[in-house]
């Protein structure tokens, strides 16, 4: 009798613990909703479709300057170089259009989970895959021709909506998202900061001469012409720069760590309109 009762009590306790545990594990969809709600609440005066403009959505002085720059966009040469690249056949006579049937306006299809390869595929990676499938040497990932190509594709894709999917029937996709999430929130480097320290809790604050942009809007406008770089750069170039700011060693562009980070961050930005390429300080 007492054994039966204590067994029952134990079962009740276990079920309770499981329920409590379940309540703590949020799904990606819940996390995305919480993320977007956080920034909308943090910046109640910023319209939803303004976050894609980064710091210029919240910094009026920086915005004046940026609007002047956008009148003669510094990324225009990159777009036209990219267009030429897109239309120039490979040595074997084929071209990018043969790899990307919907091209060139394909930016919103990336990053995406590739079920066959079991990995996140980003746009620059897919472009190099296409080259290699056609016996062309891969392009370097942070700047130069790859940035030009992506600039042209981004330009042709303007107005598309971010819509990253995490297929529910492939747990490896969720694992990639989770890995990107750990990366995002892990403190790193000698300064012991996570991405969130600057782009969540301190977004809107000033760091030296820059206003820290909110993470909502971070994935819409790549590649970017940065005055600081004096040239175009890819999203992974920016990731590397932000890692180094906290005195952590940067990862390789298109490394698994950065691809998963991009997957996580872009998923959180679902619903944001694409407006690349961009110009930034």
């Amino acid at each position: 009798m007492t054994t039966a009762r204590s067994t029952f009590m134990l079962a009740v306790l276990l079920v309770g613990l499981m329920l409590a545990g379940g309540a703590f594990a949020a799904t990606p969809a819940e996390e995305q909703a919480a993320f977007q709600a956080y920034f909308k609440q943090r910046f109640p005066n910023v319209p939803e479709d303004e976050f894609k403009n980064g710091a210029y959505a919240i910094d009026p002085v920086g915005r004046e300057n940026w609007e002047a720059i956008e009148e003669f966009p510094p990324y225009e040469t990159a777009i036209s170089k990219g267009e030429t690249l897109w239309n120039t056949p490979f040595a074997n006579g084929r071209g990018y259009a043969d790899c990307f049937a919907d091209g060139p306006a394909i930016a919103a299809q990336y990053p995406r989970w590739d079920r066959e390869r079991g990995m996140v595929v980003t746009l620059p990676l897919a472009l190099n895959d296409c080259r290699q499938a056609n016996d062309e040497a891969p392009l370097k990932y942070v700047k130069g021709p790859i940035a030009d190509l992506v600039a042209y594709i981004a330009y042709e894709s303007r107005g598309q909506i971010t819509q990253v999917e995490i297929p529910a029937d492939d747990p490896r996709a969720l694992a990639a998202y989770e890995q990107g999430k750990r990366f995002y929130f892990a403190r790193r480097g000698q300064l012991n900061f996570s991405c969130a320290h600057c782009h969540f809790a301190n977004s809107g604050a000033r760091l030296r001469s820059e206003v820290l942009s909110p993470a909502l809007g971070h994935t819409t406008h790549w590649p970017v012409y940065r005055s600081d770089w004096g040239e175009m750069g890819t999203l992974h170039r920016r990731f590397a720069g932000c890692n180094e700011q906290v005195r952590a060693k940067a990862f390789k562009p298109q490394s698994e760590a950065y691809r998963n980070l991009e997957y996580f961050l872009t998923y959180l930005n679902n619903g944001q309109e694409l407006n690349g390429p961009g110009a930034r300080k």
Binding site: A26, E31, A33, A34, A37, R182, Y184, F185, A196, A248
Partner: peptide
Amino acid sequence: RQGELGYDQALGEQHADFPAYVLDRSR
């Protein structure tokens, strides 16, 4: 020393997650 600190830091952060001040909004 940097190597040791970096190693400990990475291990300590391997379960890093959304801060409660964000996630509480979804509950």
